[in-house]
Design a protein around this nucleic acid. Structure first.
Lengths: 186, 186
DNA sequence: ACCTGAACACCGTTCAAGT
DNA sequence: ACCTGAACACCGTTCAAGT
């Protein structure tokens, strides 16, 4: 009767979820928390942690996947409720604020094209940016010809900004710079 | 009679130089080369390596410091020989091509403001960008009010680009985007 | 089919002994 | 004043034994 959404046995799924929950808190507090400490805090053996997430990177990816999925989905939502350029701006602001992931995912945007699960996550983000660009172009709100990969690369610096007093205003300035590069008509 | 340029004993200086030389090759080949392997390859004991460079980051910083100094110095050289906007463009192109450092220094631009030696290196780069911006503004070649930290942050992605077939053209596109954001008149 | 936890390997860090 | 290299500590990874 148990619903097995992903073919995992119930206890395995429970372990997986518990690891993710513990790891999210631990890694946002200190990105270099020993995996052994996470395993212990989650109450699972070393082997269990390692089987679910073969590497530290795989663990980080699993943690942030939901958050990235939500961001990607947000693009079309915003496009339905707002004029294209406004939607794009709101999306960028949201991206800058999704500080939970911070530098954890910055690496994804770097060597992104290597492994499969990385590529998949990265592609979602590119598609979101591409749809926002396309809508703005169609509305004549920005110049044509912008490359989604390039823009995402630049937006990626918003995740690399250290958290300091002027962080929010710096984000705003950087977004304004990028929109200027896109030829945004405001 | 020995000239001690930095107060180091002759053998200590020789060791330091040898470590840097070996480390440069090893780390550009594989950024995660064990420090112990570098020590062995340089023919020094573990303790010697560790005393000269207390952390992996300190070693990387020492390696790239010359290269960064050269880049920073290049700004004023270019400004003397070319119109401001042209100088800025050439400088960015050079920055994109200084691939020897690649991702090694990308971290510097992130949490840059933490330790002292990092800050010093980072400041050099900011000053270079600031001088280029100021010259362009004075010549009316770009809009006024751009923030050097922001621009350097964006230029930093040029160091994060993975090396793939279209890398050079992507660099050029990204630079063009940034210059568009600056309001460059071409 | 999945878990545990001891065992192993590796690497960064220290430090007593040397020159 | 600087170096060596063995010793230590820590952490990622594996695997035989369990349920």
């Amino acid at each position: 009767m148990a619903v097995e959404e992903d073919g995992l046995r119930a206890d395995a799924r429970a372990n997986r979820d518990r690891i993710l929950e513990v790891a999210r808190k631990a890694l946002t507090h200190d990105p270099e928390t020993p995996l052994s400490a996470i395993g212990k805090a989650a109450g699972v053996g070393q082997g269990t942690l390692y089987r679910h997430f073969p590497t530290r990177e795989a663990l980080a990816l699993a943690i942030y996947r939901e958050e990235i999925n939500a961001l990607a989905a947000l693009a079309s939502t915003l496009l339905q409720k707002h004029p294209p350029l406004e939607a794009f701006r709101l999306w960028c602001a949201q991206l800058a604020n999704s500080s939970a992931m911070k530098r954890g995912v910055a690496k994804l945007l770097q060597g992104a094209t290597s492994e499969d699960d990385k590529r998949e996550t990265y592609e979602q983000m590119v598609l979101a940016v591409r749809s926002l660009i396309a809508a703005c172009e169609a509305a004549g709100a920005i110049d044509t010809g912008a490359n989604a990969d390039d823009v995402l690369m630049l937006l990626g610096v918003l995740w690399q900004l250290p958290s300091h007093p002027g962080r929010d205003s710096q984000s705003a300035r950087i977004i304004a710079l990028i929109f200027g590069g896109l030829g945004a008509k405001d």
